[in-house]
């Protein structure tokens, strides 16, 4: 079986490979800081396998993660001016290869989706071939490898390590933002353990005037929205807002249809995800990937949709869920 841990090792190997390229790059402005950060990040991916299995102490990984944060936030990372093809060279290549360039780009989603769809059928003597709990992740990694192979076959670069060289360029432009989504998940866990959710739930139910349906709907939906903005995802907000208001007020007191109340409540939370830097993998990593000047530019583009959509959700819940 191809386990999801194998995928994490692939990612770890990539980080270590990029780190060694940076270490070997004598022109890099922050050669040692950069290679230390990416190399240590790679090692953390390996070590995590044993932490997940419960066979290695987690605090060592915790120390390593804090070292990563220090390396990244003290400007030791730097961005090497890695030489890539120039504009005119790219134009010439584009003329030469034409639409063939799209084949590797389409191989990736195609292989991924096909693997996800046929995964239930793939097994060796009853053991599934792809980790059934993480089919998408495993399929994505296989798709990525397949796409690189296809690209090498079609484009025949002089150096077969071109994919690694060129991806280092993208990685360095993303920089420390690559670590942020995982740090935010950790923050979410710490918030939950420390009881932030309980506090917010108390606050929300304290704000609620008794006996008003529209107030209940407003506090539930806006609460889902705001709490999601704070936590970065609706999954953390849902149990708390539902325990505080969704269930006791909207379903028990006002006899709302639970399927409608909860489905739309969650979607009100998704509107919050569009507005928050805490959802770094959706909002900050893309602006880094696209090399935007304003790292909040993706959020700016989304707020104008999120707010009216929140209003629509409030109206839908109010008019559909209560008869």
């Amino acid at each position: 079986m191809i386990n999801v841990e194998a995928v994490y090792w692939l990612v770890g190997i990539l980080f270590v490979a990029w780190a060694s390229l940076i270490a070997a790059d004598t022109n890099h402005p922050r050669r040692w800081g950069g290679s230390a950060f990416w190399g240590l990040l790679g090692l953390c991916f390996f070590y995590s396998t044993w932490v997940q299995a419960g066979t290695a102490p987690a605090w060592i990984l915790g120390v390593a993660v804090l070292v990563l944060v220090v390396l990244a936030s003290t400007g030791l990372l730097g961005n090497g001016k890695h030489r890539t093809s120039t504009g005119p060279e790219r134009e010439a290549y584009a003329k030469r290869f034409g639409n063939k360039l799209f084949i590797p780009a389409l191989t990736l989603p195609l292989v991924t989706v096909i693997l996800v769809l046929v995964a239930p059928l793939l097994n060796i003597g009853g053991t599934p071939l792809l980790d059934p709990k993480n089919t998408t992740l495993v399929a994505l990694a296989i798709g990525a490898v397949a796409a690189v192979v296809v690209a090498l076959v079609i484009l025949k670069p002089k150096n077969p390590a071109t994919p690694i060289f060129e991806s280092r360029r993208i990685l360095e432009s993303i920089g420390w933002a690559a670590l942020l989504p995982q740090m935010l998940t950790t923050l979410g866990i710490l918030f939950t353990k420390a009881g932030v959710g309980t506090a917010v739930g108390n606050l929300a139910s304290g704000l609620l005037p008794k006996g008003s349906l529209i107030a209940g709907v407003l506090v539930y939906c806006i609460g889902m929205f705001l709490f999601t903005v704070l936590m970065g995802n609706g999954f953390a907000a849902f149990p708390i807002m539902t325990a505080a208001i969704g269930w006791p007020v909207l379903v028990q007191t006002f006899h709302g249809d639970p399927a409608i109340v909860f489905a739309i409540g969650m979607l009100a939370g998704f509107c919050g995800t569009l507005c928050t830097p805490m959802a770094a993998n959706f909002n900050l990593v893309p602006s880094a990937l696209l090399e935007m000047k304003n790292k909040y530019g993706v959020i700016t583009a989304q707020v104008g949709t999120a707010i009216p959509l929140l209003a629509v959700n409030i109206a839908l819940m109010y008019f559909l869920a209560f008869h």
Binding site: Y8, V148, A151, E166, S167, P181
Partner: peptide, 12 residues
């Protein structure tokens, strides 16, 4: 963080 696995093909 798995998205970094697709960077090699995007890079080339």
């Amino acid at each position: 963080t798995i998205f970094v696995a697709v960077l090699p093909v995007v890079g080339i």
